[in-house]
Every structure is written in structure tokens, then in C-alpha cells.
Amino acid sequence: MTTALEALARLREGNRRFVEGRGGSHLNLNESRRSELVAGQKPFAIILGCSDSRVPAELVFDQGLGDLFVIRIAGNIVAPSQIGSVEFAAEQFGTPLVVVLGHSRCGAIAATIDAVMHPAASTSRHIHSIVERIRPSVAPLVATELRHDHDALVGHAVRANVRASANHLRHGSEILEQMLLDGRLMIVGAEYSLETGVVEFFDGVPEAP
């Protein structure tokens, strides 16, 4: 059985292949692989990422059919349906690793910053519901000197939002919290760089011995 640290190493190696332009060369995407998966799946990692078209988890981690259980939503926010999806994969498949994956220049983050700085601006109630979940991570940063540097503000807000989503998963579910306590699950936060293609894991990652 794959451990969380082994799963993390596998993601890092896959991202390295992607960045170096070697992605896809080892993947088995033919009919025999599809047939293998008809009876069931055993994904080694759960990825809660943003819906942004530039950040497809399977590609940036260079993984194939049946490898990743991917949940995508604008701003990689955590709502009850996302928690339920993570619980399902962790319980049903024994998947040991959850990665909350944000990315640079996130549009949902920028929209939230704009809503905090210009509260009179109108938006649809559905977009508003996403903004409101991101707002607690963004509002304190807008109150600092970062408000004078938009790019730096977005960069800090992306990571603050990832940390908030990861903590929400860690403490917003009795099932996940118990799995964490039992050592059966690890939840980490990461950021994908649109500029370089590199995924940096920065939250909840054990220090190397």
C-alpha cells in the first residue's frame, strides 16, 4: 500500500517530468489500462485544485488513468461537497494523501481582492458565494501595505487561501480528522506556478530528516 510520503514523492517526480518536458512518455493510456479500471480504482492521491484551465492536475503531475482523484472548483475552496468528496476517496479507496493545489495569478483570488477593495461592485450571487469563502484569507492582507502592490498581494493571498482550505479539511470533518490522528492521511498545501510549471509544496509537509 502506498504511504502518504511515497505518494508525495510520486507527485514531485511527476511534476519534475512535466517541467522538463518528459511528461506522458511512461503513461499507459490504452484499452488494456481502461479495462483494468472498470472493476475499480485505487488513486494514490486526492487533489483539490482550482478549475483554471491552465492547471490540469493529471498533466502537471504527469499521472494517468486511475492515479489521481481530482476535485476542481474555482479558487480551490472547501465547501461541504468538497469535504464529502475527499471523505469518500479517503475512506473508500484508502488514498493516503490530499493536496490542496492553488496557483499563481488565480482569477478567483483577484476577484475576491477586488470585492474587498471595492465592496460596491456587483456580481452574481453564485460568484459571490465563492468570493465569500475566500474573503477571510484575503481581507487581512488587503489591510496591510500589500494593498499597494497588486501582484504581491495576489501571491500572498493565493498561499493564505491554500492554507485556509487545507486547515478546513483538517478540522472540518470528523472522518478526516480521525484519519489524520491515526496516521492514515496527510493533507498538504501546494502552489503551481503558471510561469515555470513547478509545483511547490509549502504547507503541512514534514521536514526532511
Results as ranks from 00 to 15, higher is better:
Asp182Gly: 10
Val86His: 00
Tyr192Ile: 04
Asn167Thr: 11
Val100Gly: 02
Ser104Asp: 08
His103Ser: 03
Ala121Tyr: 04
Tyr192Pro: 01
Val138Pro: 01
Ala90Ile: 00
Ile175Met: 12
Arg135Leu: 03
Ala120Lys: 11
Ala143Tyr: 00
Leu181Arg: 15
Asn161Leu: 03
Gly172Phe: 05
Asp114Gly: 09
Cys106His: 01
Phe88Met: 11
Leu141Gln: 04
Met179Phe: 04
His126Met: 11
Glu91Gly: 07
Ala143Gly: 03
Arg147Ile: 11
Leu185Arg: 01
Asn167Glu: 15
Ala152Met: 10
Ser81His: 12
Ser104Glu: 14
Val162Ser: 01
Leu185Ser: 03
Leu181His: 11
Cys106Ala: 06
Ala139Arg: 11
Ser173Ala: 07
Ser129Pro: 06
Asp151Arg: 11
Ser81Ala: 12
His150Pro: 08
Ile130Val: 15
Glu145Pro: 06
His156Ile: 02
Met117Val: 10
Ala111Cys: 09
Pro136His: 06
Ser137His: 08
Ser124Cys: 04
Gln92Asn: 12
Glu177Leu: 07
Leu97Lys: 03
His168Tyr: 12
Ser129Val: 07
Arg170Tyr: 01
Met179Lys: 14
Val188Leu: 09
Asp151Pro: 05
His126Val: 13
Cys106Val: 03
Ala79Gly: 12
Gly107Arg: 06
Gln178Asn: 14
Asn167Cys: 10
Val142Arg: 01
His103Gly: 02
Leu181Glu: 14
Asn161Pro: 05
Ile109His: 01
Phe93Tyr: 15
Val116Met: 04
Ala190Met: 11
Val98Lys: 02
Val99Leu: 08
His126Glu: 13
Pro119Lys: 10
Ala79Phe: 04
Pro80Leu: 08
Glu145Gln: 13
Ala120Gly: 10
Leu169Ile: 11
Gly102Leu: 01
Gly189Asn: 07
His148Glu: 14
Ser85Ile: 03
Leu153Phe: 03
Pro119Val: 04
Ile109Gly: 03
Arg170Lys: 15
His148Lys: 14
Gly172Thr: 06
Ala190Pro: 06
Ser173Phe: 02
Glu132Val: 08
Arg105Ala: 13
Leu180Lys: 00
Ala152Ile: 06
Ala166Asn: 07
Glu177Asn: 14
Ser137Arg: 03
Ala115Lys: 04
Ala157Thr: 05
Gly189Thr: 08
His148Met: 11
Gly94His: 07
Leu146Cys: 09
Leu146His: 08
Val154Leu: 09
Arg184Asp: 13
His150Gln: 14
Pro96Lys: 03
Ser124Asn: 11
Val138Thr: 07
Ala90Met: 03
Ile187Met: 05
Ala108Asn: 09
Arg105Ser: 14
Arg105Tyr: 12
Pro140Thr: 09
Thr123Met: 14
Pro136Ala: 07
Met117Cys: 12
Tyr192Val: 06
Ile134Pro: 04
His128Leu: 15
Ile113Gly: 02
Ile77Gly: 03
Leu180Gln: 01
Gly75Ile: 07
Gly172Ile: 05
Ile109Asn: 00
Val78His: 02
Ile134Gly: 06
Ser104Tyr: 04
Pro96Tyr: 06
Val188Thr: 10
